[in-house]
Design a protein around this nucleic acid. Sequence first.
DNA 1: TATTTATTAGACGATCGGTCTATAATAAAA
DNA 2: TTTTATTATAGACCGATCGTCTAATAAATA
Lengths: 212, 212
Amino acid sequence: MNTKQTTARRGRPPKIARNNQDTKAELLRSGLELLTKQGFSSSGIDSILKKVGVPKGSFYHYFDSKEAFGREVIDSYAKYFEKKLDTHLLNNANKPLDRLASYVNDAKERMAHYQFERGCLIGNLEQEVTLLPTNYRAQLINVFINWQNKIATCLQEAQEIGDICPSANCCELAELFWIGWEGAVSRARLVQSTTPLTLFFEHYLKNIKLTN
Amino acid sequence: MNTKQTTARRGRPPKIARNNQDTKAELLRSGLELLTKQGFSSSGIDSILKKVGVPKGSFYHYFDSKEAFGREVIDSYAKYFEKKLDTHLLNNANKPLDRLASYVNDAKERMAHYQFERGCLIGNLEQEVTLLPTNYRAQLINVFINWQNKIATCLQEAQEIGDICPSANCCELAELFWIGWEGAVSRARLVQSTTPLTLFFEHYLKNIKLTN
DNA sequence: TATTTATTAGACGATCGGTCTATAATAAAA
DNA sequence: TTTTATTATAGACCGATCGTCTAATAAATA
């Protein structure tokens, strides 16, 4: 990749050198990292800025408020995550249920890689929803609906090739996946081990095959 | 009960009148309420005090620090909750799986009663465990182990009367219950409805009957 | 009455989210 | 070229709130 970009940027240049291709994107990335660790309410703007070496003034140039910032972080995470889901769930090289397993394994590796310090942004915010700006609630629900639909489609394909019972309600099972998965992610962070994730998914798989 | 107590209390009397039989117990109760809503990190001591009408100085008379306070809140919640679990799970008037269902219904009613503002204290803290004093982690894990054992015993009784498959691993299934349940509680708070709880438990029941 | 103990009262510094003005460098306009 | 507008960084500042600590007060005790 060519990281060097010759397009001169307008505006006052930063005091301390930083690869300032896109300050806004860096703030979002840093914010995402912190929010996946700590949630929204406990994440101060200063901590987000410190990691990127950006002064506070810049933050309020790019974002109207912390609330607006949070909205964008959720959006960018949702987009990133949908892409990730697609790479697994739409991979025709694997059978539908193996695609799901592929996602699960990927997630397990990532959690272990970050020493179980990071969880799921949406899961974190879900739990502190009473503390969040009111309009976050609908946004979070929508993200879950999208994820759920992707799983449901995958399960339906599994149903078509006879890997799960024809009478199973794939939408319900998809909802059930995310409910249990978020619980398992949370538990994995507590015990600092992937076993809750493994345990949950093993049973989930077994059960959707038997269901109804 | 006789709430009137004539024993004169030592020390400086409160400026504003309050039924100060046991200030410490009141602080714990108020803390529990707030931590169940907001978790630990976002709960300010001032808010806990304001609800009970106690000045800040009293807090640090009864507790060494917020950390020590949190430990006691967890302890008292764990005790309260174990008692609650026992009243359902040891109720011989019902069959084992009906006892579990009885707990689930109770929890659903309570969540609805509080308009889904309160969740599970342990579930809340579990998710913010990286922000908590380090020794909380082991404490939380222990609480889950206790809860899990109670469910496991109940499942084993169901197994003995043939309501679930003889080859099922009751300990694993009990762990699975809490993993999924916490996920369902979290989702219920998000969508402000008991349907996630119902959905989870319906499938859980169905699956432990079929398992293996 | 003098001392000890229990409890309340409120000061304290650090940090929070958010706003503000000043500064700097470029692009566009003249 | 010179001027102006635009973009962006810099960081002081504000009121609110965080957890902690010290001083003050009154009852119990000796």
